[in-house]
């Protein structure tokens, strides 16, 4: 679900204020979960490489959001960035708790992902985990038809013809929608300013 500031839809930051001030805090947390649950879960799978650990991470992250709501300061950065930091910190904590002592040298926060990918250097891992977060958010912010073609074509590896068969869309529409989806993704990443250095 896109993060939006449309008149009737509260922004992430407004939802955090609701949690901190006790104005329907459960509903506010529920909405944030709907917006970010997939991103946090996907990051958990990528960083921890295990569904059970990723579920544990999701729970801990959102409990931290709840417990730390009063420490969130929107003037110091957006909610997404704050949540990313929490997610990475919890991932490191889960590794520590699991006591994988042979990998203790990697427990430095910046290196957590290298537990899964020993071929990457620390800086590359940090860059990739932050980039992955931003792309994941950009995907969530895409309109559903565009997100759908990216998921089917890129993540599920379907050919354009297969997508046309599966969705009933004309082949030409699938192709043009794929193109527009990639352009919008690029635009979304550019708008956030988060990935200009990459794109």
């Amino acid at each position: 679900m896109p993060r939006t500031s449309a008149s009737n839809t509260p922004t992430d930051e407004q939802l955090m204020i609701r949690i901190a001030s006790g104005k329907e805090p459960d509903a506010a947390l529920s909405t944030l979960y709907d917006r970010y649950g997939r991103t946090v879960y996907g990051s958990g799978l990528k960083l921890l490489g295990d569904r059970s650990l990723a579920e544990e991470l999701v729970q801990e992250v959102f409990l931290k959001v709840w417990r730390s709501s009063r420490s969130f300061d929107p003037s110091r950065g957006g909610f997404s960035t704050w949540l990313y930091r929490i997610t990475r910190s919890v991932a490191v904590d889960i590794h520590r708790r699991r006591g994988i002592s042979a990998l203790s040298v990697l427990y430095e926060e910046d290196n957590v992902a290298s537990i899964r990918d020993m071929t990457s250097g620390p800086q590359e891992i940090v860059d990739n985990s932050w980039l992955a977060w931003r792309v994941s958010r950009a995907l969530e912010n895409l309109d559903e038809p565009y997100r759908e073609v990216i998921e089917l074509s890129y993540f599920r590896g379907l050919s354009q013809r297969e997508i046309a068969r599966e969705t009933g869309m004309p082949l030409g529409t699938v192709k043009s929608r794929t193109l527009r989806a990639l352009k919008r993704l690029r635009q979304e990443l550019g708008v956030t300013g988060a990935s200009r250095e990459v794109l």
Binding site: Y41, G42, S43, V135, K183, R186, L199
Partner: peptide
């Protein structure tokens, strides 16, 4: 330009519902 977007997707986990 499009290939750069694809490279960004390469490091991104597949969106999955928890």
């Amino acid at each position: 330009k499009l290939r750069e977007v694809k490279r960004a997707l390469d490091v991104t986990p597949q969106p999955l519902e928890p």
